[in-house]
C-alpha cells in the first residue's frame, strides 16, 4: 500500500511536468496545426539560462521571471527568423526544421554549459506540504504550478481580446485577417507563449530529473503522449492527459508490464489513441468540407 502511494505520487509529480510541456505543445499546435519537436530542447535551454542566473547569485523568483520573459522573446524571434520562411513549405519541411532546431539547442547547451548533470534549485523547499509524506515539497509545488499555468492559459484564451484574436487567427486565418487581426504576429505570439510555458516546464522538471542537455528528451515523448491522449487542441485535455500518462506509466511499469517496457507505454498510448480516437479524449473533431 505504501509502495502504491509512492508510485502514485511520483507519477503525479512527473505528470505535472508532462502536463506543462503538453500545454506548450498545445500552444503551437493551436496556432499552426504542427507539433514542435524542438519544444523539449528549447525548454531545456531556457532552464540552463535560469541555472546560469542562479549560479550568478540571482534569487529564484527573479531568475524564474527573467527566464520566462527571455524565453518568450526567444520564441518570438525563432518564429520570425527561422519558422516563418517555411510557412508555405510542405509540412515535412517544417518538421525537419523543428528537428534541426532541437539538435541545435541540444548542441549549444552542451557547448556552453557542458554535459555534466547539474542539480537545480527549487523554490519549494523544506517540509512536505499538507503533511503529505509521500510527496516532497517540490513535487507538490510542481503540480500546483502546472494547474496555475493551465488556469492562466485558459483565462488568456477565454477572457482576453488577444487570446480571442489568436484563436481566430488559428481557426480561420483569412477571415481573421479581413477583420484586422495580424495573423503573422499571432503565430509569433503563439511561439513566444509556448517557449515561455516550456521554460516553466523545464524549471519544474530539472529538480526532479537533474539538468543536462538531454533532460527533456523522454519528457517530451511522454508530454506528446499526454497531449495526444487528452486532445492536442484542448489545454484541459492536454493537462489531464499529462497527469494520466505520468500515473499510468508508473503503475503499469511497477505492477503490470515490468520496467523493461515501461517506456513503450507512452508509444502504445500515442498509437492506440491515434487509431481508436484520433482527436483524443477531449479534443474537437475537425471536419473539413471538401
Amino acid at each position: 500500500m505504501v509502495e502504491l502511494l509512492h508510485q502514485l505520487s511520483s507519477g503525479l509529480a512527473l505528470g505535472g511536468v508532462y502536463a506543462i510541456t503538453a500545454l506548450a505543445l498545445v500552444m503551437i499546435f493551436q496556432a499552426t496545426q504542427l507539433v514542435n519537436f524542438a519544444q523539449g530542447e528549447m525548454a531545456m535551454f531556457s532552464t540552463y539560462v535560469a541555472w546560469a542566473l542562479l549560479q550568478n547569485g540571482w534569487n529564484y523568483w527573479p531568475a524564474f521571471a527573467f527566464t520566462v520573459a527571455l524565453s518568450f522573446v526567444g520564441g518570438v524571434v525563432i518564429e520570425r527568423a527561422i519558422v516563418r520562411p517555411f510557412a508555405h513549405a510542405p509540412i515535412l519541411a517544417s518538421v525537419i526544421v523543428f528537428i534541426g532546431l532541437g539538435f541545435i539547442f541540444n548542441a549549444l547547451a552542451g557547448f556552453f554549459f557542458g554535459y555534466t548533470v547539474q542539480s537545480f534549485d527549487t523554490p519549494f523547499n523544506g517540509r512536505p506540504w499538507f503533511g503529505a509524506k509521500f510527496m516532497s515539497a517540490h513535487e507538490s509545488g510542481a503540480i500546483v504550478v502546472s494547474l496555475i499555468v493551465l488556469a492562466l492559459v485558459f483565462a488568456f484564451f477565454r477572457f482576453t481580446p488577444l487570446g480571442l484574436a489568436m484563436r481566430a487567427a488559428a481557426q480561420n486565418p483569412a477571415s481573421a485577417r479581413l477583420v484586422g487581426v495580424r495573423v503573422g504576429w499571432m503565430l509569433a505570439l503563439g511561439w513566444g507563449l509556448a517557449a515561455a510555458i516550456g521554460a516553466i516546464a523545464g524549471m519544474m522538471a530539472a529538480p526532479i530529473v537533474y539538468l543536462d542537455p538531454n533532460m527533456m528528451g523522454g519528457i517530451l515523448l511522454y508530454a506528446f503522449a499526454g497531449a495526444v491522449l487528452g486532445g492536442i487542441d484542448n489545454p484541459w485535455g492536454a493537462v489531464l492527459g499529462g497527469f494520466t500518462v505520468g500515473v499510468v506509466e508508473n503503475l503499469l511499469g511497477a505492477y503490470v508490464v515490468g520496467t523493461e517496457v515501461k517506456l513503450s507505454v507512452a508509444l502504445i498510448i500515442i498509437v492506440g489513441v491515434l487509431v481508436a480516437k484520433p482527436s483524443g479524449l477531449f479534443g474537437r473533431r475537425i471536419v473539413a468540407r471538401v
Binding site: S10, A205, G218, A254
Partner: peptide
C-alpha cells in the same frame, strides 16, 4: 532506458 526521465518509480519498486 536511457531515454526515461527518471528512475524514481523503479527505486520505489
Amino acid at each position: 532506458e536511457t531515454s526515461e526521465p527518471t528512475v524514481d518509480s523503479q527505486v520505489v519498486t
